[in-house]
Design a protein around this nucleic acid. Structure first.
Length: 305
DNA sequence: TATCCAAGGTAAGTT
DNA sequence: AACTTACCTTGGATA
């Protein structure tokens, strides 16, 4: 086992691991107590979290287990390889300068309150295939249940990985998921999303398209590219761009943001996704509008206080 | 206990 | 191109 610590002083603008991982951006992390997103478990502040980096993203071409915990003075990590610090920096966007991002955000009361309440929350950069599948599953679904679905997919189809005496599961590869049947996936309570997941996995497995290819495109073209996947509309495409592909200007128009537009920025409602998206993106300052979206989402979702 | 409702939407069919 | 409707499932609210 490899382990280490990264001093919190290295995180410009602070870091809140729990808000980052439990704000509904990412479904590839878990807590050993299984308490992620459940209302009956107190927010655990210094809990350990773990994920399995897919083999395609590691130096060894083997799935890599990463565990981390935020202590008083440092982010503590344990992993199956010594490359964890680089991977954590990317996955948790630890190089983002939150002070600079907040400074570059317009002075809007709702944004100020959200940034104050969840200071230190960072965007994530999930592996793209898992992110794509997660947000296909997110349609009409509560955050806690999306997390449950991803866990069941990993246990049913992902490679098991032994680490420090425990067994973890990597997220399934496109090929592994493509081999599942719609009925198999419905048994995991995916509901009508089951065929979407299967067909999208098949598209990626057969090389027809890959979410990573959207990185090379301009923002709106990238969003259009992603909507070719089955079960992916504008909203899910924006989620993948923001939470996986480094498009920090993307503002997914989910139910919470639509509520915020209705109540706080009604002039941004333009009657269709593309124009409304453009308007709220400008209102939120453009370049880092996705950061503002995620803070507003988390702030409103947790009661707005 | 039974019923209803909404949850980070999308695809397919109509006008 | 804009507008409707159906779609799985289930925890939590309401009666």
């Amino acid at each position: 086992m490899h382990a280490g610590r990264v001093p919190v002083t290295e995180f410009a603008g602070g870091f809140d691991l729990q808000s980052t991982l439990e704000s509904g951006q990412t479904y590839v992390w878990d807590r050993p107590d299984g308490g992620m997103f459940t209302d009956d478990v107190a927010w655990g502040g210094d809990a350990w979290y773990h994920t399995v980096l897919p083999a395609t993203e590691t130096e060894t071409n083997e799935p890599e287990v990463l565990r981390c915990r935020l202590g008083e003075e440092a982010l503590e990590w344990e992993a199956s390889t010594p490359h964890a610090p680089e991977h954590l920096t990317r996955l948790l966007r630890l190089d983002d300068d939150l002070d600079a991002i907040v400074d570059a955000t317009p002075e809007l009361p709702l944004l100020r309150r959200a940034y104050e309440r969840y200071g230190g929350m960072r965007l994530v950069e999930d592996p793209s295939f898992a992110c794509l599948i997660s947000f296909i599953c997110s349609a009409q679904m509560r955050v806690s249940r999306i997390h449950g679905m991803q866990g069941r997919l990993a246990r049913a189809y992902g490679d098991p990985v032994e680490f420090d005496g425990d067994t973890y599961h990597a997220f399934p590869t496109p090929g592994q998921l493509a081999a599942a049947t719609e009925a198999d996936l419905r048994d995991l309570s995916l509901g009508y999303r089951a065929p979407y997941v299967q067909r999208t996995a098949e598209m990626v497995a057969e090389g027809e398209a890959h979410p990573d290819d959207a990185r090379e495109l301009e923002y709106e073209a990238a969003r259009d590219y992603l909507t070719q996947f089955v079960g992916v509309g504008d909203k899910v495409a924006d989620c993948v761009l923001l939470f996986s592909l480094d498009f920090l200007q993307a503002v997914p128009l989910d139910t919470w943001i639509r509520t915020a537009i209705e109540e706080y920025y009604p002039e941004c409602e333009k009657g269709n996704y593309a124009d409304t998206s453009r308007a709220i993106r400008e209102r939120f300052g453009g370049e880092y509008a996705g950061y503002a979206q995620t803070y507003v989402f988390q702030f409103l979702r947790t009661g707005g206080e």
